[in-house]
Design a protein around this nucleic acid. Structure first.
Lengths: 193, 193
DNA sequence: GATTGTTTATTGATCCGTCAATCAACAACC
DNA sequence: GGTTGTTGATTGACGGATCAATAAACAATC
């Protein structure tokens, strides 16, 4: 039943299955076979399209990152004024698409991987820089020289909230998480004012 | 040339080697053989004393947690007044002993493990509850009903800073990290005042 | 203070399972 | 008939756990 033009479809379902499987297992120690099975194909095909397990996982993270980036850009475009821009970045970080259990689990494992694999580290650095730059640009008009440290703190807080979400018993609550991060922002701004 | 009374010595050096090896590899995927080798014995002996790789790692984390707990207790005892108590908890969290690269790496992997292994989850819950309780008790006199959420946020921030430390290129800077967390605290307090 | 027996410490070898990766071969399509 | 898609079977490596065997230290007994 092979059809032509399968490649993009296969790639997409493998990426989706990778996230799902890692989210389900909570670990990077999922077999390629399991992922492939979930995506409805044999493990050999997964290797055919991605070359290696690690490449598959990195592709999945790249996908997550792309979605996140798009969401942030969209929210920023719709935001009016510096404070709204900062809040937009926060809300995008905790949007339903990004703050799903599986995605958060993937992030957590991605962090671990980034400690040793240069390619993962590179990808992570891109994300961190972008987030930091978005935040400090938004905060600069409000906090001036204090924008850098405030952005740094906010970035750490966002990652911390992600971490807690990965470990919480209940399903992650994006709205509550966003409120938590926004409280920090509010405190920082009021302090200045 | 076996001597008697080796058990506590062996256990201690295995635990130390486990942290070191995981810190070095950045991953839980270190072989028992490597750990045992670093501790100066065969892998069989490691199994003899701890039963399994996972049990060994959990023992190592229990050890880290114990040290951390002791440090927090000490800092709290020396603190004078609510705000000083809150700052004491923060400083203890980033003390040189706890905020070493290896320890932070171990924490990161511990988080991942806690997603699936009940025993790890249990241990983590103990830590989280203790931290949260310490923080909210300290903040209650200052923030009243706002103490809960503030403590929650502070806990998330602390974990986030740990996360960033695990990934930073440079060696973790405990003083800088503590300042970051204390800035949050300051902002929260000033807001109330 | 030798003899015998018991416990503790320790290892090398190895079993057994797992898994990423490869390959040969087959199927559909143009 | 060449390209694309697909798989089952296989391999090679690795690693956790186990175990039989060895040896020192100690203890009880005579």
């Amino acid at each position: 039943m092979p059809k032509l033009g399968m490649e993009p479809i296969r790639r997409a379902s493998l990426i989706k299955a990778t996230i799902a499987e890692i989210g389900h297992a909570g670990t990077l120690e999922v077999t390629v076979s399991r992922i492939a099975k979930r995506a409805g194909m044999s493990s050999a095909l997964a290797h055919h399209y991605f070359g290696s397990k690690e490449a598959l996982f990195l592709a999945a993270m790249r996908h997550v990152l792309t979605l996140y980036g798009a969401e942030v850009r969209g929210a920023l475009a719709a935001a009016d004024g510096p404070e709204a821009r900062a809040r937009a970045v926060i809300r995008a970080s905790f949007s339903p698409a990004n703050f799903r259990r599986e995605v958060v689990a993937a992030w957590l494992n991605f962090y671990v991987l980034a400690q040793t694999r240069p390619e993962a580290r590179r990808l992570l650095t891109v994300y961190q820089r972008r987030l930091l730059s978005n935040l400090s640009h938004a905060l600069r008009p409000l906090l001036g020289g204090g924008a850098g440290p405030a952005a740094q703190g906010l970035a750490a807080l966002i990652d911390g909230v992600y971490l807690h979400a990965a470990l919480g018993a209940a399903a992650p609550d994006g709205a509550a998480a966003a409120r938590q991060a926004e409280a920090y922002l509010t405190a920082m701004l009021e302090r200045r004012a």
